[in-house]
Design a protein around this nucleic acid. Structure first.
Lengths: 127, 127, 127, 127
DNA sequence: GTGGTCTAGACCACG
DNA sequence: GTGGTCTAGACCACG
């Protein structure tokens, strides 16, 4: 279901979170869609159930998904978009780090914007 | 010297690496410039000397700085720009993650590119 | 009949119990009034019949309702008011926890009492 | 250090969270104070380190404490007091439940307010 | 069958 | 020595 890479530097639970958020943004997962149960997904990905639990809990905290007692876990209606200043600064720092790395590989502004543009294109459907 | 933030989620050694790379890219630090000794910098930043050592070692591995026995540590001539495919993929993943987070805050392609554009502007001097 | 919220953190059976107790206190349900059958209520609320059963059993244990074989379930005469010391301590702990949370939101004693006062007002008819 | 009660219905990690928040509100723990390490506290309370970790992570998420890499965990400066409407509603529901229980024990408005008043008195220092 | 809590214990990154 | 991640597995509440 999700391409999990145990060799990835990012922890597994974070990869799961990102995969689900990406599918929500792309519209592959829609509000009300049921997610596989913790144990099911853990089985599919051959990771521990606790790892999936951690991912689901974080997604619930972010109001991306919601758990209904005894029924399972579902995609929530899209949460209010709100700008968290602290988080925005964190993302800017991360982006800056990425730009520095790309520049060390020989990329200039034009090419960097081109990369980001391609990523957005693939990801975001403009309304 | 560097604005190090012990509360930052990023490890301190990584912050040091990024600060130095940024200053090199901006031309504030030039090839041949001497860096403070490990102990000096550790004292200035009030961090553990091992932390600075780790940062310097990583920078040396990336050929950003070089150590001359008995003399000290210096900014190296800019390394050959070369595209490491694995690393490029990693950066793309990171950029994608950041774009997803920005989109969840309400940003669309235009605004995301605007953010990245501002970062590049501040960072990279076009030759 | 009752506003049940499957998304609520509280278990459904607890919500049912609370709703019935609230209606009894408010005098909406009076001793002798018949309650819907387990299946009926389960159907109305679109919840599992076991869930309603559990709520009714707990209410019966607390002598709030009583089941008469072959006839159905009825509101009992108000049980003797008795102070269970253990339970009182539990409620105090819960109240303390709520006061802490309210204080973290900026509420002081006056405002907290105001909140509780409004709740009592709406709930309890002084004899 | 903290009175943890394994028989308590509330999960252990929640009891730890509440204890720390209470001590912060009472001024027993002040900004900058170091908390015992995860392992230390786990040892003292004879609970598992993971349980303490969970409590600390939740407290960090609420910005009550902060972790500094390799140094330990500290009480943060008091977070901005902000009213979360959803959470306020949850607390009101909980308070209502408590009032109902108290009323079933024979308490009327005056006595309930008296209880809450005593709790606030012990807890909150008016500025 | 669903998720939630907790344990015991391993291994890792960071300082 | 500090916290972070993950596993394997137990037991529980809820439906």
């Amino acid at each position: 279901m999700f391409p999990i890479d145990v060799r990835d530097v990012r922890p597994i639970y974070e990869q799961i979170i990102d995969q689900i958020k990406e599918q929500v943004i792309k519209g592959i997962l829609k509000p009300g869609d049921q997610l596989p149960s913790v144990r099911q997904l853990a089985g599919n990905l051959t990771v521990n159930a606790n790892t999936v639990t951690k991912a689901y809990q974080e997604l619930e905290r972010q109001r991306i998904i919601e758990t209904i007692r005894g029924r399972g876990t579902f995609i929530a209606v899209l949460p209010e978009k709100e700008v968290n200043k602290t988080k925005l600064e964190e993302i800017r720092k991360a982006l800056k780090g990425n730009c520095i790395e790309l520049h060390y590989m020989g990329f200039y502004k034009e090419q960097i914007l081109e990369e980001v543009s391609k990523i957005c294109e693939e990801l975001i459907k403009e309304d």
